[in-house]
Every structure is written in structure tokens, then in C-alpha cells.
């Protein structure tokens, strides 16, 4: 395996962009907005699942932030790198395998997802006492970053323009952010929609981050999330292996 230079390149670019204040603000703008508007606005007035709404909302926002940041970084970086700057072609012409490229990119996306969700988590510790921080919580957070970074690889490879990436985001990522239990319980949705939502990965990340305890239901969710990760990873490798201009 020779994924390290691919991962390291992305980290160097990430570090350069981190130094720009606007970058951090844009990465955390949406979750902070939701946290302020819903979490602190409704906050302690609304009770949900035996706690305050803020306690309910915070794990959902952490899941959403890890999803959007892992996905967006990779999908955008690969689309722009492949179609505009043509830096992706350097990997294809170098003696590295498709798996090296995918692993390097996914790890970089995970770093970004964990960085953004870590900041939100740190803030959440001051605002809420409802977070259950244990091994499973962090395992699920890492797995969620992996799933959506791997999905970002697929989108980054399949987009034929920057607009295509936005379309994928609007059709897959945005609905998941709103319907998969980030802001309200999935059980309150109509039955047909509920069944679809229960098949989506973010639903299971939300469930696991709220109740990170080892039981049969958690294991099923973990298995489903892992399956999503494996499928997206394999698809990413196949797409890159078949890449031809």
C-alpha cells in the first residue's frame, strides 16, 4: 500500500486552508446556526426523549457535521482536481493502485470530518450534559466519517461538472441531514418515508450517537453502517480502476 503521499498531500492542503479563518467558519457555519437557532432557541423549553431538546439535538448535529465535512471535502477536491486543476491525473499516472488513491482520500476526508465534529463536540460539552462519550460513540463517529468520505470519492469521480457535485449534495446529503433524525425522531414520519429513512446510514449514526450502548439494535446499526462503508469503498476502487479519459 502506498496511500500515505495521497493522504499527506490532502493534509498539507487542509493545513494551509485552516489558516484562513473563513474556511473554519464555512465548515462549521451550518451546525452552529442550527445549534443557536434550534438548540438554544427551543433548548430547555421542549422536552424530547426524556431530556431537553438541546440534549437531543447535539448528537444529531455532530453526526450531520461529520457527514457533510467528510463528504464535501472529498467530493469537491476530487471533482475540481480531476476536471479543473487536473491534479488527480498525477495519481493515475503514478505507480499507485486504485485502492491507494481511495484509502488516501478517505482518510483525508475523515480527518476533516473528525476535526469539524470535534470542535462541535467540544462546544457541546459546555452546553449539554446529555452526551454519552464512550468507545462506541467515537467508533461510530469515525465510521460515519469513513462512510461519507467514501461516498464523496464516488461523487467526486462521477461528477461531470461542479454543478453535478451540488446536485448529488442536494439529492442525497441535504435530505439525509433533515430527515434522518437529526432534528426530530424518525418514528414521527409517515410509514413509507420512515422505512426509506431507516435504510439510510445517517439514521443509524444518529441512533448510535444518542444511545451508544452495546445491544442487538446497536449491533444491527453498526453492521449496516459498516456495510455502507465497505460498499462505497469497493465502488470507489472499481470506478478509479476503470478510469479512462
Amino acid at each position: 500500500m502506498n496511500w500515505f503521499p495521497i493522504f499527506y498531500r490532502e493534509l498539507l492542503l487542509f493545513r494551509r486552508r485552516l489558516l484562513r479563518l473563513g474556511y473554519v467558519v464555512s465548515a462549521l457555519f451550518s451546525p452552529m446556526l442550527y445549534l443557536l437557532a434550534f438548540g438554544l432557541g427551543l433548548g430547555k423549553r421542549v422536552a424530547m426523549s426524556g431530556g431537553t431538546y438541546l440534549d437531543y439535538l447535539l448528537p444529531g448535529l455532530i453526526a450531520m457535521t461529520s457527514m457533510t465535512n467528510s463528504y464535501t471535502w472529498i467530493a469537491t477536491s476530487m471533482t475540481v482536481g480531476r476536471l479543473h486543476f487536473r491534479t488527480f491525473q498525477v495519481y493515475i499516472q503514478a505507480p499507485v493502485t486504485a485502492a491507494d488513491i481511495v484509502v488516501g482520500q478517505i482518510l483525508a476526508g475523515m480527518v476533516r470530518g473528525l476535526f469539524a465534529s470535534g470542535i462541535l463536540l467540544g462546544l457541546g460539552l459546555f452546553l449539554s450534559t446529555g452526551l454519552h462519550l464512550n468507545l462506541m460513540f467515537f467508533l461510530v463517529l469515525v465510521l460515519n466519517c469513513l462512510v461519507f468520505a467514501a461516498f464523496g470519492v464516488i461523487v467526486g469521480m462521477k461528477s461531470r461538472s461542479h454543478e453535478d457535485t451540488a446536485t448529488f449534495t442536494n439529492f442525497f446529503i441535504m435530505p439525509m441531514a433533515f430527515f434522518c433524525g437529526t432534528f426530530f425522531p424518525v418514528d414521527e414520519m409517515p410509514w413509507l418515508l420512515r422505512d426509506i429513512i431507516k435504510a439510510l446510514p445517517l439514521t443509524h449514526t444518529n441512533r448510535l450517537l444518542r444511545f451508544p450502548f452495546w445491544n442487538l439494535e446497536s449491533l444491527e446499526s453498526l453492521a449496516l453502517l459498516s456495510a455502507y462503508g465497505v460498499v462505497c469503498l469497493a465502488l470507489g476502487i472499481i470506478i478509479i480502476r476503470r478510469y479512462s479519459e
Binding site: 500515505f4 486552508r17 498525477v90
Partner: peptide, 21 residues
């Protein structure tokens, strides 16, 4: 010119060299 414009000359060469082990 498909260099990484946000990286230094050294970093560009280093990453390429590592890709080729």
C-alpha cells in the same frame, strides 16, 4: 500545469517522489 499551487515547490516534488517510492 497541474502542480499544487497551494503547496511549495519542495512539497510538490516530495509528494511526487513518495508516489514513486
Amino acid at each position: 500545469i497541474n502542480l499544487d499551487r497551494e503547496l511549495t515547490a519542495y512539497e510538490n516534488l516530495w509528494i511526487y517522489g513518495r508516489l514513486h517510492r
